[in-house]
Design a protein around this nucleic acid. Structure first.
Lengths: 119, 119
DNA sequence: CATTATACATAAGAAAGTTATGTATATTTG
DNA sequence: CAAATATACATAACTTTCTTATGTATAATG
């Protein structure tokens, strides 16, 4: 039985903000826990965002005006929803474009542009 | 006139070791300065490895047995060449595979798998 | 001869994560 | 129904891995 390993933690550094901004752009609004679960699912458990990484990032994004928040109560428990501002939408696009470009450069640097099939 | 910007520094984090190991695998042996110049060239100046990042990394790789070194003198000036050990070759392959896989996951997460042409 | 390029090295600081801990409510399970 | 797990937030201490700054020295160039 094959256990799918997580990526080494260095790899997530530098891409986490882009991932979060892009999810918010696609989903409209999300709360923190939801983001961790969605990334976990979409990555087949290979990317698990820790709360210690996510919440400080969301707070920073709010502080610099990329997102706004509103709270909703589910019974007695609060959910804090985050949505992109206009500035945040611009940031999201810029970040995704930069990362996309960076990955192209990396593929070239690492000679991963094989046109033939590979395993 | 378009000035090609460098990638934001977070992006290089996590990929530097992979880049260096892969270059050594392809080139057989390289010295530090040569690595910085080659990456700069291959990336059209968009990735510039700083010496403060590279040399400590090379020393760490040597310490953990991924590379061996030998010095050559060019006139009075020394060049320290680095080559992969067997262990280092395994590390290089593992690292490249992991990064390649990670990039696939990212493309999926960020919805970059467009089959149509894009700009 | 002054500047730039080559070539190494390391220390101080910043950025961005992980790990650990804390609080509290909701749901599932034995 | 009690205990365990899941949901949901938050923050502090620590680590890793860069950047920035500094230092030394030789070679080439204008």
């Amino acid at each position: 039985m094959y256990i799918c390993p997580m990526y080494s933690s260095e790899l997530l550094k530098g891409t986490l903000k882009t991932i979060v901004l892009n999810l918010l752009k696609e989903q409209g609004k999300m709360y923190g826990y939801e983001i961790t679960q969605r990334v976990k699912m979409l990555s087949s458990d290979k990317i698990q965002i820790t709360e210690g990484a996510l919440y400080p990032l969301l707070h920073a994004l709010e502080k610099q005006g990329d997102v706004t928040t509103h709270e909703e109560f589910i019974g007695k428990r609060v959910r804090k929803y985050y949505s992109l501002t206009e500035k945040g939408t611009v940031s999201a696009n810029e970040k995704v474009n930069e990362l996309s470009d960076f990955m192209l450069t990396l593929r070239f640097l690492l000679n991963l542009d094989s046109t033939s099939a590979n395993g």
